[in-house]
């Protein structure tokens, strides 16, 4: 019995020190980690909408409910960003939003910029963990020449153009990684459809395909 208590105290003491050290380092690194995340979003925004001078986020309050349907608290979430070409936020040039898709082995997060009539200005893959050499090539943004995947092929595409070649569309998919290509394309399409109502984008007549 005496032994058990002694061993417990020793172990508790060691874990206590470890917890203290970890808490300190967490405090030091946390602001820096958040800064990095923010910087990444900002960089992606600048990339998809290079002409924007001011990008205020549009937030939506999402109520978090408990089991009985009572609202516990409201969580703020950025739905999309408005892009203005001047600091005074007078001249609206487009919107930016994040699209999330489930790829082959990871969740793919894409930043998408669109102009005021719903054409994509550019896209940028923010995070993915797809197969190296296959799905991971999705980030490639080399000039689009027509037969290889590049994020540049999304430029000027509209909702109805967003379909990969395997599904009869025009987006050239990554060789050997159709699932990844499809996940990115479809996630952007879904998010655009979701946002069309909220943004002041003229809804185009959908041409029925035969």
């Amino acid at each position: 019995m005496h032994n058990v208590i002694r061993l417990s105290i020793i172990l508790a003491f060691i874990t206590l020190i470890a917890a203290f050290v970890l808490a300190e380092i967490y405090n030091i690194t946390k602001p820096r980690i958040e800064e990095q995340k923010l910087a990444k979003t900002q960089e992606a925004l600048k990339y998809v909408l290079p002409d924007a001078q001011s990008l205020p986020p549009v937030k939506k309050k999402i109520p978090v409910k408990d089991g009985k349907g009572n609202t516990l608290y409201e969580r703020e979430e950025i739905v999309y960003y408005k892009a203005y070409s001047d600091q005074q936020e007078q001249n609206l040039i487009g919107y930016a939003f994040k699209a999330y898709g489930t790829g082959y082995s990871s969740n793919i997060e894409t930043m998408v910029g669109i102009d005021t009539i719903g054409r994509i200005t550019h896209i940028r893959i923010i995070s993915q963990k797809e197969t190296p050499g296959l799905g991971a090539l999705a980030e490639n943004s080399e000039p689009f020449k027509g037969k290889k995947w590049s994020t540049q092929q999304f430029i000027n595409k509209q909702i109805d153009d967003l379909k990969v070649d395997k599904d009869g569309g025009t987006i050239v998919s990554i060789t050997g990684a159709t699932i990844t290509s499809r996940a990115i394309t479809n996630s952007i399409k879904a998010k655009m459809q979701e946002l069309t109502g909220e943004l002041d984008i003229p809804i185009q007549e959908t041409v029925e395909e035969d």
Partner: peptide, 26 residues
């Protein structure tokens, strides 16, 4: 002390790994 050496080692190792993880992502 021998009886608790493995949990002891794991705590020490896990702490350092967590430090590496936090510092690296920062």
């Amino acid at each position: 002390i021998n009886k608790i050496r493995i949990p002891m080692f794991i705590v020490v190792i896990a702490s350092f790994v967590t430090i590496v993880e936090m510092v690296m992502s920062a």
